[in-house]
Design a binder for these strands. Sequence first.
DNA 1: CGTCCACGTCTAC
DNA 2: TAGACCTGGACGG
Length: 359
Amino acid sequence: MPEGPELHLSSLFINDSVKGLIFSGEIHKSDVSKNPTIKWDVPFYTITAESRGKEMKLWLEEYTPKEGTQAMPPQKISILFRFGMSGCFKLSSVDEIPKHSHLRFFTAKNNADTIQVLNFVDFRRFGKWEVNVDWGSDRGPCPITDYENFRHNIVNNLENPAFKNKAICEVLLNQKYFNGIGNYLRAEILFRSKIAPFDDAYNVLCDWKHAAFYPIKTENGAAPSNQDPLYLCHAICSEVLKLSGGYDVETGLKENGSFEKWLQCYQNPHMKSLTDRNKRTIWFDGEPGPLVPNDSNIRRPKTKRRIVENVVEKSVTGVKARKRNVVTESTELQASSRIPTRRSPRFAHVLELKGEQTL
DNA sequence: CGTCCACGTCTAC
DNA sequence: TAGACCTGGACGG
């Protein structure tokens, strides 16, 4: 779930779904969570949210029913969340607290209305929260909400060692500059910009150093070229935000399949994949580029051969089948490409489409 | 049953 | 630059 767009959608979801709700009572933490207990003892409070890259802040503000009667300004605290690999927010009833809910905010009892619960759900528990802290100091501006500063922070710091002699696919995961970009976004960004994942990051980014913030329209009004990777960091996030069809994190996006259909490269069995220096899988098309680590893709050599044979066997006929064959052979020579060993259920639709094409 | 893999950090040698 | 931190789904035997 959670890269920049999901964090942003979560904040939109909370601001929308919790708008007008009054919360009350203590904030409940699961027994198993190692994150801090939140001491917050006011009769009533409201919740708002904001996101920045791969972080999200909740603001809790004391609610006083009658305006102007409070002697003191309302109390306020913030909770900074990082979602890890599986964190998300879900609204539920008291009777249907989701499994793996680790932090719960309860609405006040209110005659007619049933109590609702805002849950931080995180089945792998890599997610973290901290109370009353600022955004992570080692994280850059948000490509979604602060694109211009995001871009400045990169082009003004290109001489930093973070960009020197590094593969662009690895630099794209450096949250000091690419806060919010994760493994699926880097694949989609590089795929659309037609940049080889293991090209030198400094060289690549220097090419776009003086480009316009937004692609410039051609004179005849034709669509501008959108291959600027920095612009794509913003634009591709925006596409994901639009997919949900509103802020409905529950039924939108990942659960209705629109996200899977939107992905062009990530975990697509027709693409190539390699592991980067941090053993993270990068999905790509075409040439890998010069900075492929020596040990990339030697993780499961035993199964690889068998998988390659399976793939060729199943590729029946047609251009794609031949193309595929070439791909596997050339990467075998390099001893550095991984053929997806399983197809993700997420890509069932791709395979279906392919079936239609080859029939 | 077992192994591998997953939208991400962290920190310890 | 490994591992650690976690749960669970897909797949293999």
